[in-house]
Every structure is written in structure tokens, then in C-alpha cells.
Design a protein around this nucleic acid. Structure first.
Lengths: 138, 138
DNA sequence: ATTTAAATGCAACATTGTTGCGTTATTAAA
DNA sequence: TTTAATAACGCAACAATGTTGCATTTAAAT
């Protein structure tokens, strides 16, 4: 099964129409080697109306097809969801790593499990954002 | 030593003038029982010019006097730095917890240390953002 | 008290978020 | 294959925040 067919299935499974714009956005996000910055999406999808990009991103986020990764609260990055995610729950087993040199953000599967405990608190989700220097920039 | 004197020392130590606006902002941030949302700052500091609030926050962030806490990438929250932080390095030993019910964000010291290792990567900083239900909302 | 550098307020513009609405396109059903 | 229902899209419009320049005011060192 080719990639496009997989995207169409993914979209229909989430009750989203498989439009050319959505397929194009998904192709761009999936083809990027790391999490793609919003500015990069704008560049690659200049022919998209600003609102269409906004709404398409939201639709895919809500559908659990892509996810956001905003490390150090500057630019927002987007990446494909690897596992099965829904609007209610993003089940990511990875952390987000941002290289302070090349500013590349990637989703990394950590070997060690992150265990957080907070007294008197019912934890639902733990997001870990790591920054440092990647192998290429070292 | 009273709180105001401490703030003045803190500002001068970072080469920032101890102006009434900065002292007022610090008082508001410090008095808030948890991390204060930006919208709350606006409400409590209506008499601040928008740009002044913007620049004052940046000055204090750069000086390592306050820090940002943006959990789940919606509103931005601000809180006092507990340890000695600088513009280059925020040395926080805590995680940020956001209650999905009351939306309160707090800085929590975790008992267990967070250990993250990523192959071929030089980690500089690890930010952990936890969401769930706090004791009050349980 | 004077001076110097920084802080503040105002104006202005950029960027992104957000909604409504008319038009277009997808998809399921006839 | 055509048609009908519904969702997606483009455009306009407005809100909120980010950001900079510049003139004025203020802090704090002399």
C-alpha cells in the first residue's frame, strides 16, 4: 500500500474527508526528517490560504494524526503521530528533543522510562522537552 | 529583610533598575499562589502599557528572576525562579503541573529525579510538563 | 543637584488566532 | 453515473499578541 492510500485511510478512519490539501499537508509533514516548524509549513504550502492551513492543522491535531511539539516555547513544530492517537489522548512514548544549534526538533524514543510522581495528584499526561546539542552539531 | 528590599536586591544584582513597575509586577507574580497566567497579569496590571508589560516580563525572564511555564501549549504562565537562574541557564529542579479541571499551573518539586538519556546527544536541559487532576479537583 | 543610561508610553506595524459566510468539493446514496 | 448532503475551502474581518522606533521620563551614580 502506498503512502497516499495510507493517508486516505487514516483520514477516513477519523471521519475526515481525504482532500488534496490534507494529503499534501500530510505528505509535507511526513517527508520532513524531523518535526517541521510552522514557518517551514508556510513556505512549503504558500498556495494554502492562511485559514486553511490553520484549520487543516487543527483537524489533523484533533484527529490524532499529527501532534504539536513546542520546545522552549518559541516556534511551534508539528510531527506525525507514530502510535494510535485520538483527539482525547495522544499516546506518545517519546520525548521532544531540540538542538540549540541547528534548532531541529525531533521525536526521540527514550530507552529509560520517565517516572514522575506528585503527591495527591492524579497524573494523566507527562510531556518531556529536552534541549541540547545533537550529534551533527557536536 | 522585607520582600520589596529583596526584590530590589534581586533586580540590581541582574543590572536591572528597581523601578516601581518591576517591583509591582514581581509582587503580583510572587503573591500568586501558583504560576500566574498572562491574562491574570493583564487584569491585575491594567494600568501598565501593553508594551511595558511585554518588556518588563522579558527583562525579568532574561535576568533569570521569573520563568515561563507553558503546559499543553495554550496560555503562558509565569512564576518566580526559586533557585539562582540566569539568562543563559534556568536551574529548575521542578516540573510544571497543570490541573485540567481548574487550569491552575504550579511548580512542583518531584521526589524522584528525572533521568533522560538520548544516544549521541548532549543534553543541556530537560523540561517536564505534567497534566492531570489536582487534589482540590479530585 | 547634575548627568547618563535605562525604562516607559505611545504609535505603528507584523504575525498568528479565530469566526462567519458564501462557494466548492468530497462522498455516500440513489 | 448522477445527485444530494455535508464538510472543506477561500475570503473578509476582527482580536490578541509580538515587536520595534522614538520621544519623554526616571533611576541611580557622581
Amino acid at each position: 500500500m502506498n503512502v497516499e492510500t495510507k493517508f486516505i485511510e487514516l483520514l477516513r478512519d477519523r471521519n475526515l474527508k481525504a482532500t488534496p490539501k490534507r494529503l499534501e499537508l500530510l505528505t509535507v509533514v511526513a517527508a520532513f526528517n524531523s518535526a517541521i516548524p510552522y514557518s517551514e509549513l508556510q513556505k512549503k504550502l504558500k498556495h494554502f490560504d492562511r485559514v486553511t492551513l490553520y484549520r487543516t492543522l487543527h483537524a489533523l491535531l484533533d484527529g490524532g494524526i499529527i501532534h504539536k511539539a513546542s520546545v522552549s516555547s518559541d516556534e511551534v513544530y508539528y510531527a506525525m503521530c507514530k502510535e494510535y492517537c485520538t483527539s482525547e489522548c495522544h499516546n506518545h512514548k517519546h520525548v521532544h528533543f531540540k538542538c540549540v544549534e541547528c534548532l531541529e526538533v525531533s521525536c526521540v524514543n527514550t530507552t529509560n522510562t520517565i517516572q514522575i510522581q506528585i503527591p495527591n495528584v492524579q497524573i494523566q499526561q507527562v510531556d518531556v522537552e529536552v534541549s541540547g546539542v545533537c550529534s551533527k552539531c557536536m
